[in-house]
Design a protein around this nucleic acid. Structure first.
Lengths: 100, 100
DNA sequence: TCAAAATATAAGTAGTTGCTAATTTAGTGC
DNA sequence: GCACTAAATTAGCAACTACTTATATTTTGA
């Protein structure tokens, strides 16, 4: 019927928003260190390597778009990938960019 | 050894650049109408729906990043997806965003 | 050679993004 | 309550993006 990969404008917009969320190197790296794991903000800061404020802002972007979910424990906040589609996307990135 | 999805910074940057290229709704739509096909600029303008100048500028972005390849025939220019990784990426988008 | 069609480029500008630095909020334990 | 740690928020600014409008280039065909 059609050979277009995505044929509804609504799907285009949805995909575009999701892709934008992960198109920033710091955010992509955050998603990579969170793969499978659940980490506190400080652990993410240590792994990714920029300021706490900067990480916090990127976490907020990902959280607001529904990509990340959070859990609070005492005075720390733990983040994990809460959106299965994003997990799938990031996994696919590895196949495309990290294979021979 | 590691559970990170992508573990080299160089891969992160590479992936991030590629993702940025397709993160714009018009560019994603261009890639979708080009799936499999080879189309002239005017055909892309008609399919995607904005000005010729705007399309031309987005085509230039995709061309400069090596995503699209071109072929000139008379006074028309035909574009096609020239990067297999991008084709794979856009295909995967469909799986993620267009399934039940 | 001239007009028309197809595409590309350039200049200007509004809107967005991403950072830094400073401040604030919330929770813990003394 | 106070000091400390963890995290979020705010303000300001520099850089970048995407669009519009106008113009240039290339090719065709009469």
């Amino acid at each position: 019927m059609t050979n277009k990969l995505i044929d509804k404008d609504e799907h285009i917009m949805e995909a575009s928003l999701a892709i934008k969320a992960i198109a920033h190197p710091l955010r992509l790296k955050i998603l990579c260190v969170l793969a499978g794991d659940e980490l506190s903000v400080q652990e993410i800061v240590d792994s990714v390597g920029t300021t706490q404020s900067n990480i916090s802002q990127h976490l907020a972007i990902l959280r607001d778009k529904g990509v990340l979910a959070t859990r609070k424990d005492a005075n720390r906040v733990f983040y994990r990938i809460g959106d299965p589609r994003t997990l799938k996307l990031v996994g696919m990135m590895r196949d495309v960019f990290c294979s021979t």
